[in-house]
């Protein structure tokens, strides 16, 4: 049939090269960094806002709100990029998971220290920190489990082919 007598005009190498921008490690690093920085920033700014001692003037509230929305926008952009634009393979997920644990732990420590120094809002700060770090730990555990399952499957299939 016609297409059986025709061949794709683009060589395989060119097809694969055009996928380069999506497969670039930098694209994944940028997306993970945007998501983590956005989330960490949101938690930090929100914790500062919440634990601010005394009544705040309207302009300060507005500034905190703008900062929070700004950080949320980066988190949303990073999340959208990671789920829709850039593939995160199993090994990438493990690395991203550990980055999330590191970033959430650092943010949790920072938020808790600020709350202790101010002497207010300690309980909410600890609560938010636990949720944030907990979510990161869940992500890294799931990433390790997924990678381990794929490695087991790879070993089984390689063994079957070797027979």
């Amino acid at each position: 049939m016609a297409a059986m007598t025709e061949e794709p005009r683009r060589p395989a190498r060119m097809v694969f090269e055009r996928l380069g921008p999506v497969l670039s490690p930098w694209a994944r690093i940028r997306a993970v960094a945007a998501a983590l920085a956005g989330l960490a920033g949101t938690v930090f700014v929100a914790a500062l806002w919440w634990s601010e001692p005394g009544p705040l003037p309207g302009r300060t509230h507005a500034a905190f709100a703008v900062f929070t929305v700004f950080c949320l926008a980066w988190a949303g952009y990073g999340g959208w990029t990671l789920t829709r634009r850039v593939p995160l393979f199993a090994t990438d997920r493990v690395i991203a998971g550990w980055l999330a644990v590191a970033a959430s732990t650092a943010t949790a420590v920072l938020v808790t220290v600020v709350a202790v120094q101010r002497g207010s809002g300690l309980l909410p700060a600890v609560g938010v920190s636990v949720v944030f770090v907990g979510a990161a730990v869940v992500l890294v555990v799931r990433a390790h489990a997924r990678r381990a399952a794929l490695l087991r499957r790879k070993r089984r299939l390689t063994g079957e082919e070797g027979r």
Partner: peptide, 16 residues
């Protein structure tokens, strides 16, 4: 040619 390239892009994004 163009659609085949789009398909491969979607495949790479969805493969994980």
């Amino acid at each position: 040619d163009d659609v085949a390239q789009e398909i491969w892009l979607a495949v790479v994004r969805g493969l994980p």
